[in-house]
Design a protein around this nucleic acid. Sequence first.
DNA 1: GATATAAATGAAAAACACTTTCAATACGGA
DNA 2: TCCGTATTGAAAGTGTTTTTCATTTATATC
Lengths: 148, 148
Amino acid sequence: MTTDFDTLAQQLRDEGHKLTQPRRAILHALLDSSKPLSPAEIQERGQTYYADLGLVTVYRTLELMADIGIARAVHLADHCHGYALATPGHTHHVVCKHCHGVTEIVGCELGAFLASVADRTGYTITGHWLEISGICPTCQQNLPESKH
Amino acid sequence: MTTDFDTLAQQLRDEGHKLTQPRRAILHALLDSSKPLSPAEIQERGQTYYADLGLVTVYRTLELMADIGIARAVHLADHCHGYALATPGHTHHVVCKHCHGVTEIVGCELGAFLASVADRTGYTITGHWLEISGICPTCQQNLPESKH
DNA sequence: GATATAAATGAAAAACACTTTCAATACGGA
DNA sequence: TCCGTATTGAAAGTGTTTTTCATTTATATC
């Protein structure tokens, strides 16, 4: 279950990609960190492993790693790209992957889950964000058998 | 429970802010829409209510409304600003509001919740994103009584 | 209703984030 | 070791968000 460098490196190669110095540096930077890093931070930290690491390469490599499943994008609170009215009371969203329509789900049944998270991690939980993606009823009809 | 214009407008004023024409226009634009809008979309739609609505004002007003709790930022899938290594298996994050450290929560117990969402909304659920914020154990010690 | 004043605005410019293009480089199979 | 191709960094391009500042507008007070 430990995620070590060699495992990740092998995963890259298994998918048919080259294990280059920039990619090694990016992997190391991510492995070193206990928190998500912005592309710029990854470049900075990665440069301790490979001095010439370029930002463009960081973007490309992150995209590649996310595709493969090695890395994942973490939505930070700032720089969001959409706004909606906040419905009184606590709600979550379901976003349609196809038409980008949003349906709000009223009611929040995560209490027990959050309590167990607090227990397990020692955090004081102050908030949460849940976003669910899927295909809305309308798009299901309009795209009856398209796959991707 | 209905969110109407007058309620929102009053909320703005109650917080000590002026109810200007640009702000009215932005409120109307958001009220009209069933999905989250980007700042540019809000400007465009808002201009049907106030022709001179500027994009800068949209940004400022959204920030204000989010502070007050009238609007909320919706994280869209694209343009994320952080990356972390993906732990094998499905995990969620707890992000510390203070040090921005991230702890991964192994295991996902949302199955039943998601099933009920699918039922209620008619969506085919394809994925979900849960992010929990709080204060990590370390920061709780280092900030014993600081508030806000 | 008129006035004063502080908040709010829009335009312009700056800062920033991300993508595309392309010639040069380096990985890894032969 | 050599070769073909994937990968790279620099530069330029594009779009988004923030800052600055002079002007305008909402509202409390007269």
